[in-house]
Amino acid sequence: MAEDDDAERMRALERRLSEARKAPAPGKDMMRGLSQGEAAWRMVIELATGMAVGLGIGYGLDALFGTRPLLMVVFALLGFAAGVRVMLGTARQLAEAAKRAEEEAD
């Protein structure tokens, strides 16, 4: 009976697959550490570029209107706020991803 044999083999495969899925993937901790470092690195860059972009816009507008350093100061602060906003956005995104991963794991 070849068909019974096949069905039995499929069941055995299914069992082995489910066991393999349960076992934690090797090196997962290192990957997690690395991706956390990656996220931190990303946030720092966003914070810094926020200020840099704000400062750049302020500098350009100052050169345009001849109001140096007034707009530079204002836009540096706005740029800082923008950097914080982008950073918080990234943090929210990461938290959502973590939550989704947790729900999937359950």
């Binding site: 690195w41 860059i45 570029t49 926020g50 972009v53 923008a82 906003r85 956005g89």
Partner: peptide
């Protein structure tokens, strides 16, 4: 004010995207 901040954060994207 928030619009200006949002606009700046929109421009932060390509910069951080490439520098990273």
């Amino acid at each position: 004010i928030l619009a200006v901040i949002e606009l700046i954060s929109y421009f932060v994207r390509p910069v951080s995207h490439s520098i990273r």
